[in-house]
Design a protein around this nucleic acid. Structure first.
Length: 627
RNA sequence: CGGGAAGUGGCGCAGUUUGGCAGCGCGCAGCGUUCGGGACGCUGAGGUCGCGGGUUCAAAUCCCGCCUUCCCGACCA
């Protein structure tokens, strides 16, 4: 260890916020070169190699073959798949001076993998085939952060499966999926597979593997009752049962008390089991009550200059209409988006909820607002949009809520209150457009969902023929001689992110506690007071050689520094076992083997004068294996 | 991309308000004393004060421009 490259550091670097980042830097595992770019020093590299070894074993076991694809791709490849646009600014591309040409530093390898297989697999007899690599990837992240968790350069283990049929794709998917489950088990992570959004990769079915951690950037919902689990970006929400308190009422005093109007709000299409929440409302009275309500509640305009956000509207109108109890949930959040056909659509959700953009929809940009002057940024309302060729799509949770609502007025600097669904606006399409939150009902069983903060460690996709149908020659002939595109799957593990995620989960106030499977060394050998005591130095040194020869990975702290430094470094660096050789122990004829995690000491007998090394090594190995 | 903060020996920071010898702690080198949970004494090495311009007798410090880094936000209209 006196020759080990980095020194440990007492203080974390100023830019490290996360405990994993601090400990990995202090322990000498990684060093930052620039924002989002890290070097792996000997200890960090050892961890990556141990993780990679587990990945290789499991993927090889399920029949995948390792390859190494280029990190440098021709720009044309990304243009032909259309993903130059899809990945946008994240795609690092550059012009090579001299002989020239535009290149991409590969952020992922679906195109390359498909091209490789397309060139060599022409028959159903050659399928299925699965290739994988462990490679450095590049993404021009807008904002790298959290140490190893979000970087511009990172290592990924990515696999690609090719099958002759949808069923084949499913079984390949299942095989890699269960390999992933085993990989995370082996490296000491409890990774939960959850349904996820496919993002820029594409395909239908996909799962993310999530590790619960406050350091993570993702959140997923989970149903304890039926096991439903999904990233909040992809989670559906079951029918929301309205609570009395959620019913938004906006009235003026002369038109009736809150209670009076409350009791007259109809809920068409209310399910029987929901009626209990509204003892005063019945579907049979619905029509009559609606007409009453229409008389009771007028549409009123409010001058709201510069008031654009829901919160601002609520605060502003609360002053204007003091008699009404105003909450964000009484406002319709109306978001202008472009649907996959390029047509404008307004998405409507309750004002206290976040919008979940459906797949392939995108938000309005400035130029879209220019092109559609009927939609005024900050003042959009659902009224009269269908007539003007703008479809209104609303979240299902609004289906049973007539109003009255507040929204933008589709006029500059104006909002309106008293809007009733059916009277003042209609909805063209109902769907799931809200981001799930804790307590929402499960879409499968209705039980309340819980929300967990998490770090994504892997993502698996059933791609179908998304890529193979676009890339020239990505087909095989079936037994009748007919060409078909491959059925593909792709799978990625964020390898270089894993040390950070593991440390987030496995540490204490003194430092890292590596699981044995990924620890750079199994045993951290400390010689306490070796500068003073010849016996200690000699015994420790002999023990180091004996253990190493027996195949135990030993990190030997042979430095003549004070014990506190040695113990402190050992705790910080986090090897699973500390083997302490000191004069106190030797005087009693023992060396001490302490487990980092349990902080328990096992005394290993040793005869200082004439040790039987094979016995000592054996008892150490035995103690380690017991755990 | 918007907002905020910061760049001073390897690391962590003070000094900038009010211009006047470039400092502290850790680490590093040498010598000595220590030695079972981050010991101590003495001696020493190491800095274009992010970069470029300007003001001034004089700039880490004031002014202008640029670069880099960190934090918050970035679909919620």
């Amino acid at each position: 260890m006196s020759r080990l490259l980095p020194r440990t550091r007492r203080e974390p670097p100023a830019d490290a916020e996360l405990i994993s980042h601090q400990l990995l830097v202090r322990g000498g595992y990684i060093r930052r070169l620039t924002a989002g770019v890290y070097s792996y020093l000997p200890l960090g590299l050892a961890v990556l190699q141990n993780i990679s070894a587990v990945i290789r074993e499991e993927l090889n076991d399920c029949g995948a073959q390792e390859v190494l694809m280029p990190a440098l791709h021709p720009w044309e490849l990304w243009k032909s798949s259309g993903r130059d646009r899809l990945l946008g600014e994240v795609l690092p591309s550059f012009l090579l001076e001299g002989r020239g040409g535009r290149y991409v530093l590969g952020p992922t390898h679906e195109e390359v993998a498909t091209a490789i297989i397309a060139g060599d697999v022409d028959s159903y007899k050659q399928l299925p085939v699965c290739i994988y690599q462990i490679q450095t990837k590049f993404r021009d992240e807008a904002r790298p952060r959290f140490g190893l968790l979000r970087t511009r350069e990172f290592i990924m283990a990515d696999a690609y499966s090719f099958d002759a049929s949808r069923e084949g794709m499913h079984s390949s998917y299942d095989a890699v999926f269960s390999a992933y489950v085993r990989i995370f088990e082996r490296i000491g992570l409890n990774a939960v597979p959850v349904k996820a959004a496919s993002g820029a990769i594409g395909g239908d079915v996909n799962h993310e593997f999530m590790v619960d951690s406050d350091a993570g950037e993702d959140s997923y919902v989970k149903c304890e009752s039926c096991g439903y689990a999904a990233n909040v970006e992809a989670a559906n929400v079951g029918t929301v049962e309205l609570q009395e308190s959620e019913v938004s009422v906006l009235s003026t005093p002369e038109e009736g008390s809150k209670e009076e109007i409350d009791s007259k709000i109809p809920r068409p299409d209310v399910q029987d089991d929901q009626l209990s929440a509204y003892p005063t409302a019945t579907t049979s009275r619905g029509r009559d009550v609606t007409s009453n309500l229409e008389n009771l509640i007028p549409v009123r305009e409010h001058h709201t200059p510069g008031i654009m956000s829901i919160d601002e509207v609520v605060r502003y109108l609360a002053d204007q209409i003091p008699e009404a109890e105003l909450k964000a949930s009484a406002v319709l959040k109306c978001i202008a988006v472009i649907d996959p056909n390029g047509e404008p659509v307004v998405l409507v959700v309750p004002g206290d909820r976040e919008v979940k953009l459906p797949a392939s929809f995108r938000l309005f940009e400035e130029t879209d607002f220019d092109r559609h002057p009927e939609l005024l940024k900050g003042y959009i309302g659902p009224m009269g949009l269908s007539e003007r060729g703008v479809k209104v799509m609303a979240d299902r949770s609004l289906q049973n809520r007539i109003g009255p609502w507040i929204s933008g007025a589709n006029k500059p600097d104006t909002h309106v209150s008293g809007l009733l669904q059916g009277r003042d606006f209609t909805v063209d399409v109902w769907g799931d457009f809200v981001v799930a939150k804790a307590g929402d009902p499960c879409p499968q069983c209705g039980c309340p969902l819980s929300l967990s903060r998490s770090a994504e460690v892997a993502h698996t996709f059933q791609l179908g023929i998304t890529y193979s149908s676009k890339i020239e020659g990505a087909t095989f002939l079936d037994d009748a001689g007919t060409p078909h595109p491959y059925w593909m799957g792709c799978y990625g593990i964020g390898v270089s992110r894993l040390p950070a995620v593991i440390v987030e989960v496995h540490h204490d106030e003194r430092g890292i506690i590596w699981p044995c499977s990924v620890a750079p060394y199994t045993v951290h050998l400390l010689s306490i007071g070796s500068g003073k005591d010849e016996d200690v130095a000699r015994t420790a040194s002999s023990l180091y050689h004996a253990l190493s020869q027996a195949g135990v990975k030993v990190l030997y702290d042979d430095r003549a520094v004070s014990p506190g430094i040695q113990f402190g470094d050992a705790d910080l660096m986090g090897m699973p076992w500390q083997l302490v050789v000191g004069n106190k122990g030797l005087a009693r004829g023992v060396v001490e083997l302490r487990s980092r995690e349990a902080d328990k000491v096992v005394e290993i007998p040793i005869t200082p004068t004439n040790p039987n090394w094979s016995d000592v090594v054996e008892s150490i190995q035995g103690a380690i294996a017991d755990r």
